[in-house]
Design a protein around this nucleic acid. Sequence first.
DNA 1: GAGTGGTCTAGACCACCAT
DNA 2: TGGTGGTCTAGACCACTCG
Lengths: 270, 270
Amino acid sequence: MNQAPQAPQSEKPETPDTPGRRASGRTPLYLTLAADLRGAITAGEYGSGARLPAEDELARRYGVSRGTVRQALAALRTDGLITSRRGTRRVVLAGPGEGGAVTELRSFTRWARSLGQRPGGRTVSVEEGAADAEEAEQLRLESGAAVHRVLRLRTLAGEPVMVERTTYPREVGALVAAMPPDTLSYSEQLARHGVLFTDAHHTIDIAFADAEDAALLGCRAGEALLRERRRSTDPAGTPVEWSQDRYLPGTVAFTAHSTGAFALGRRLGP
Amino acid sequence: MNQAPQAPQSEKPETPDTPGRRASGRTPLYLTLAADLRGAITAGEYGSGARLPAEDELARRYGVSRGTVRQALAALRTDGLITSRRGTRRVVLAGPGEGGAVTELRSFTRWARSLGQRPGGRTVSVEEGAADAEEAEQLRLESGAAVHRVLRLRTLAGEPVMVERTTYPREVGALVAAMPPDTLSYSEQLARHGVLFTDAHHTIDIAFADAEDAALLGCRAGEALLRERRRSTDPAGTPVEWSQDRYLPGTVAFTAHSTGAFALGRRLGP
DNA sequence: GAGTGGTCTAGACCACCAT
DNA sequence: TGGTGGTCTAGACCACTCG
């Protein structure tokens, strides 16, 4: 918002103090705009059911083009904060309280911290091995390729919550194995080594606790657990993690929002 | 693709027979383009890990602007079919087999049919009542407002799969109550009456079967079920449905894909 | 340094909703 | 009929990746 980003001709040089501007290093314009609007909504400026200003109005008010406004509004839309349809102004779906903070599904540690919780856990075992059929398929490796397996118990406020069984391909696993055993967030540490998790495919269903689960979580063997299976890939599309997480019932719920075009679905079987 | 849509000056009048064109009534260009690319991927033309042509190349090849190409690719991206990062061509994530058909989470009936399954079920009860606290909040009504409650058993190939407890606000409920009891898909019928479900917020966790669940599903009381709670709204943002669905373990799994910005999350508690 | 995707602008026409 | 969002174009600069 500070400098005119790429105005070819130096027209309109003096609308620098439009309202809603905000310190922007290299954050894209539309993201700061989206944050601004999100803030206005969660602050109650636009309550549930309220109509947002028109795109043109926002463009004028913020001194940006309509395209940029639309990009910002699209972000709010995929968060489930607003609707949009042709012919009418956008309508606010969630009020100040509800749905405001969509806790992006990513690192357990980061998620817990963003909720003001105290995440913890301990690494039960780290082993090297040969990929079985499922691991090979998920990580796009040859069957029998070298992988690292990590078994961890995750806690919230000291209480056991989840058992996590993760398989890493050799290169990534070597980094993980070299980390101190009390490392809370592998993904944060891996990011520091240039290994980024940008995409993930999730499957959520029910699994039943085996003896190991039961011992770690302190539940009965055979008890139902909420299972999340996840394959994460890096920006280049290379699989970097295949994980099976099992949550004690009642500790977490998964949330999602679906609009016209969306990728949450059901599939048959486990 | 057939007519130059809005070329202000009639430049470039004769690139009508670009490859990949396709019958287009009023389907947006970018959607037919997206379908084309999706087809190419699932047909194996671009396998898992393959690099897509550059945006400029696609724009030239299809005779459209780069913006339109980007819109199409964005659709593939939210489906989890491709990655994208600055500096490199887009990479295909899922091969022909995997993830190709993301069964959008919407109507049970439509979902089942799209999988070649035979959906069925029966309406157990339809009743009128006064909204309790939770229903009132979810449907944005006053506590005690008139609502309709529908209890249904859903089957797949004749086998019980899910118990569905749905609450509708009065106006919508009146339409539902007027439908024949063997109506398979209320949402399809409601759409015919102009009631559209465009947005939905989902929460997925575990619940335990009560006596009614057990009797309908043929399981033991207390058995763990996969629960989905859903609030659907119409294009204007008005809540039109609040539903609690309980699936037998092993019958379905929920799938989702998350990219940088996404709305799948965890939250604490049930 | 060339190639490529990310961001932004400016302007146009259309489809739809409400009045 | 006028307002509004959806689609599309054309062109520009920037940030990043990779050989």
